[in-house]
Design a binder for these strands. Structure first.
Lengths: 372, 372
DNA sequence: TGTCGCCGTGTAATCGATTACATCAGAACT
DNA sequence: AGTTCTGATGTAATCGATTACACGGCGACA
């Protein structure tokens, strides 16, 4: 706020005061060549202990940090990893991100994030990044990348850099995939509901064409079959993993004259939105209708009622993906597919069906369905 | 789609198949020098229309993308921005991140994320990034960065690159700050509760030393005073913005013999956790106790009961911060401080106090406090 | 004791773009 | 017509690290 008069401190042109320390400065100070400095850092075993010590000391004294641009230009490595995801503001992904960041940081890699947001323009972003060699590798959290846009083949591996698919595995691609067994998990939840006595179990889906969704839907159908229940298309409600779509599904249910006794939502967000809508309409959960979710986000445990759901080890998923990618980047072998365990988390939103009043004689119904 | 058999186009000259296109290749193809190619891209008005057209054509033909490392090495610009935040997996931040990413992307900048996670090691990460010139600028979402760690002065501006503080403004620093008026918002909510008839309003705090928290706390006290209510330290509960801490605060309240009629939580997460605990203990919200939050995260609207809270324009906050930083990076003037509006969102978790039984005569009390 | 090899080190080429400086053609002005 | 100026372009230095190659010194082996 005070005037910077003529007697103010001259600072700038007096000397290149804040000019970054270069490798040459270190070399001079340690009385070695730049090559030795570089080697002392990259492969310490290749320089003599004495030289190494002098270099390290000089580095400490000067606060030298290698210029990443120069290093990258020459060595063709960026020590950067691109993470591509469909929606940054989604709780589910952000926890995974954290896991990724942790591991990458440990390994000395930085993380660049690209939120696709479903726009083709953003895919160009991704392409530009990888093509320009701005990153050494990438972790993909969206199954349909380049699916139809690029070469129709659905193979995203054309970038020339190591890739890892996380969660939404790209089916035919030959890149490592880190995932949970969505199908088994969905099947398990469906069977759990059936084992409680539910005969009419609705399903709120994720977005169509989503690979994850397909697996889960398959699991739902499998679970029904394993429990001896028929599949009824009328019980499949369209959703897209968001709270809002859960609420829409809830309104749909509320408007029906005969309702399922249980609803399996393929995301916790949808389950919470759906519960909210049911509650507002005067229905009780789980007395009138049971609701189950998928993911076990933080809010699942504090929902009212607490949500029965499937826990995904999100942080661990992220860590694993990052670890695999780092292995790949450093030339180490890595497994092609890793499946992490999910866990059924039983809380209060699911209970055995209470009132059988709106359930007609089952045998009759089953046979009545046959003539189609 | 047709097979690229032996008679298919032989691609490049055979050997260096996937070698990146260099500026030289473009120059040769366009029959100009590399300087002209560079200029055609950086300052189109400085090359003749014909040359520019030939360059552009050559670029399109070859798919040339400038090598960022080389560009960065020479021009000292990275077109990367660092975003530092305390917790990536927090819903609140991730929505802001999205806003940031949007704007940065539009301006051609990439985003590197660093999740501090409270560890000093990570601050080193930050320092290394900035010092090494790996980014052109940074957006800080945590008020206490370098607070006591670096030079005790609390000024983070020693990095030499443009910075912008978002939300948790660094008090004395001379960097642009994008924020909401936490104090006014907290005061407003407190007064709203008071105007409904609440005389005993508890406050669940954020982490101590958090600048944001201090502002809100000041606002709470201000609101009490403006409403003619005494400040009672016993009504201040310690929290840290997490669901878990909200639940702890809830347990605290449940255990008390005389309870406040309203609770103002400084984050929605805490409010939801607290409501959950109260509900589990058999208390009714808002009949027995009103609960208000702060942030208006997605789940606030679908909480049971729906949460009365303060809406922060999170995406807009992010966008604004990014816009300001980009202005700074490109040498344009930018405002030193931007305050975005908050909004009181009235839902179901707050109502006038119902039972006055545990409220002693107010006049008596006020005068009883005086002799201090 | 002579030769071979290895180890540690230095010199200099290299990565690919940007940009200061030089050059040259043609327009404009006297 | 001659001089100057302007605008377009090319040449080559430069950014700062990595690393191929060369070299000297020393131990090992015959």
């Amino acid at each position: 706020m005070d005037e910077s008069g003529p007697s103010g401190r001259p600072d700038e042109d007096g000397a290149p005061s804040s000019r970054a320390v270069r490798i040459q400065d270190v070399a001079r100070l340690a009385d070695v060549s730049t090559a030795t400095v570089s080697r002392a850092l990259a492969s310490p075993e290749r320089v003599s202990p004495e030289a190494r010590a002098r270099v390290l000391e000089a580095i400490a004294k000067t606060g030298y940090v290698p210029n990443p641009a120069a290093r990258s230009l020459r060595s063709q490595k960026t020590y950067m990893v691109l993470v591509v995801l469909p929606d940054l503001s989604n709780t589910f992904f952000s926890k995974i991100l954290r896991g990724i960041e942790e591991r990458l940081f440990e390994a000395g890699y930085g993380m660049i994030i690209s939120d696709l947001d479903g726009s083709p323009e953003k895919e160009a972003h991704f392409a530009a990044f990888t093509a320009a060699g701005r990153v050494d590798g990438a972790i993909l959290l969206n199954g349909h990348l380049f699916g139809q846009s690029r070469d129709g083949e659905g193979t995203p591996a054309k970038t020339g850099i190591p890739l890892v698919a996380l969660c939404e595995a790209i089916p035919s691609a030959d890149i490592p995939q880190i995932e949970i067994d969505n199908r088994a998990a969905a099947s398990g939840m469906t069977q759990h509901l059936a084992s409680l006595g539910h005969r009419s179990i609705a399903y709120v889906s994720g977005p169509p064409n989503n690979i994850l969704e397909r697996e889960r839907f398959l699991g739902y159908q499998e679970g029904l079959k394993a429990s001896g229940l028929p599949f009824d298309p009328a019980l499949v409600l369209a959703g897209d993993y968001t709270i809002a779509s859960g609420m829409r599904a809830g309104q749909d249910l509320v408007a029906r004259s005969t309702r399922p006794t249980a609803v399996f939502c393929t995301s916790d967000e949808m389950a919470i939105g759906l519960m909210r809508t049911l509650l507002s309409a005067g229905l009780r959960v789980p007395e009138d209708i049971s609701v189950a979710g998928f993911d076990d986000i933080e809010f699942a445990a504090v929902a009212e009622p607490a949500l029965t759901t499937i826990r995904q080890p999100r942080r661990e998923l992220g860590q694993t993906a990052a670890a695999v990618l780092v292995d790949l980047l450093q030339g180490r072998p890595s497994p092609k597919r890793i499946r992490l365990e999910t866990e059924l988390v039983l809380r209060d939103s699911v209970a055995p069906p209470q009132n059988m009043e709106n359930a007609p004689a089952k045998t009759t119904r089953t046979s009545a369905i046959k003539p189609t």
